[in-house]
Structure formats: structure tokens, C-alpha cells
Simulated assay, not measured.
Amino acid sequence: MKLKTVRARQGLLWVRAGFTVFFRQPLAFAALFALFGLVVFVLLQLPAVGPVLALSLMPVATVAFLLATREVLAGRIATPRLALLPLRDPLNRNRLLQLGAAYAAAAIAVVLLSHVLDGGRFAAAIEAIATEETTAAAALEDPLLPWSVLLRLGLMALLSLAFWHAPALVCWGRMPVNKALFASIVACWRSRGAFAVYGIAWFGLTMLFVTLLQVVTALLGLQQVMGLAVLPLTMLVSTIFYASLYFSFVDAFDLSGGPDSSEDEAKTA
């Protein structure tokens, strides 16, 4: 498995390929996303350990979506059983569990570090929004709140560099966790132009969808259902995003005899 050079324009092709493969089997991808969503919801009900376990599940969810995309590209039906497939191999299971524990610990560390650096400003704003409308307005007017949000986004982006390709590398590359994390960082850095385009494209599409939803609900006089409509829209965009992850991996690493890259997939759209 060797690193490949990735052009910046590939970021757009990853997004396009994600939409293409999703609409080949939308119900299959939606069912897989709903399954993990249900598991996360159940885990979050557990006091103290629930959020940690939910975060630890992320590498398994990533591999399941990678497998689902590969199945669809091969012309097979992607079923929810793919959620358990990465755990059947003992070596993969152990490494994915280690990766999940590392991700949970790192994510919690990012939250704590951000809380210290911004003096608890972000947490106070969230609490104010959830409690009283008057205090929420005052919290949102804090001139340093945008800095606090950017701080969290920046730290989470750095965290993503290490864990983006790592689940696939431990399963398909048979790499130990430490080597997979290092290889993921190197691959993401070498593909930084493509990832920048990829991130901007997803942000732009999300804003476009939300704006269109606002316009439609306003024209129909259904502004009161806007909040309810945002949830399924978010789930749809998230599912397509996960469907696109496979292409960022196969374009970054040379997989002999592997399925199509995003560029090949985009050409067949």
C-alpha cells in the first residue's frame, strides 16, 4: 500500500462520487446510518460512560460505511450486517477497539483543552441557549464567541487528520494503530488541497440546502416546521458524507486490484 499524489480538484470529485453512490442504494445507506444512530442514542443514555462509548464507536462506523460503498460499487446490496463485519476478524477487532479508545480520549482532551483556552465561554453560551432566551441573546453577542467556535473546529480538524484514514489502514492495510495514525496524518497532509476543497464543498452544500429549506418553508407558510425539517436534512447530508469517505481513501493509497477511484466513479455518473 503506497501513498498517491492527490490533486486539489479530487475534493470535488469525492463529494460528487458520494452523491452518485448514495443514490444507487439510498435505502441501504440510510439504514446503516440509522442503525449507528440508534446505537449512539442508546449509548448516550448511559451515565458517564455513554458518551465515551459512543465516541469509541466511530472507527467501526467508518469502516462499515467504507465497506458499504465498496459493496455498492461492486454491484452488491449493502446491508446493515456490514456494521459487524469489521469486528469478525480478531486482529481487526482489537485494533479498531484500540483506535476507538484513542479517538474517544483524544476527542475528550480536545473538549477539555478548548474549555480551558476559552475560559468556558463556549460551554456557557450553549447552556444559556438551552435555558433562557434572554441570556442566550447576551451569550451570542460575546465578541470572543466566534473565536471559541473556531478554536474547537481547528482542534477537531487536526484530530481528524490522524483518524481519517486510520480505520481503513488497520483493516485493509493491516497496520498497527500507531502506524495507521501516522500514515493517516501524512496522507491527509499530502492531500491537504483536496481536503480543503472537500471541506469547502460540503460546507457550501450544507448552507445551500439549509437556505433552500428556509425558502420553501417560508413560501409555504410553514416556518414553524423548519426546526423539524432540519433534522432529516442533517441526517441525509451526513449519510452522503459518510458514503463519500471511501473515495478519499482509495485516491490517497494505492490498492492493487481495488475498486474504482473517485475520478473513475465520477466519469460514470
Rank of each mutant, 00 (worst) to 15 (best):
L3H: 10
L3Y: 05
R16K: 12
F19H: 04
F19R: 04
F22S: 03
A34V: 10
L35V: 10
L44G: 07
Q45R: 15
V49K: 00
A54W: 02
V60Q: 02
A61Q: 13
T62Y: 11
L66I: 07
L73R: 04
G75N: 09
A78S: 03
L84H: 06
R88P: 02
R88G: 10
N92D: 15
N94S: 15
L99I: 09
L99V: 04
L99C: 02
Y103H: 10
Y103T: 07
A107K: 12
I108A: 09
V110Y: 00
L112W: 13
L117F: 09
E127W: 12
E133V: 15
T135R: 14
A137E: 15
A138C: 09
A138S: 15
A139H: 07
L140M: 15
L140H: 09
L144I: 00
S148R: 07
V149G: 03
L150W: 15
G154T: 05
M156N: 13
L159G: 09
S160Y: 13
W164C: 00
W164G: 01
W164Y: 15
G173E: 04
R174N: 08
M175L: 15
V177Q: 02
K179S: 15
A180M: 08
S184Q: 00
V186H: 03
A187Y: 02
R190Y: 06
R190G: 10
R192M: 14
G199W: 03
I200Q: 12
F203C: 13
G204C: 10
T206F: 14
M207V: 14
A218F: 08
G221F: 05
M226Q: 14
G227Q: 05
A229L: 14
V230Q: 11
V230G: 06
L233W: 10
L233P: 08
T239P: 05
D251I: 02
S261Y: 04
S262W: 01
D264V: 07
E265C: 11
A266R: 08
K267G: 11
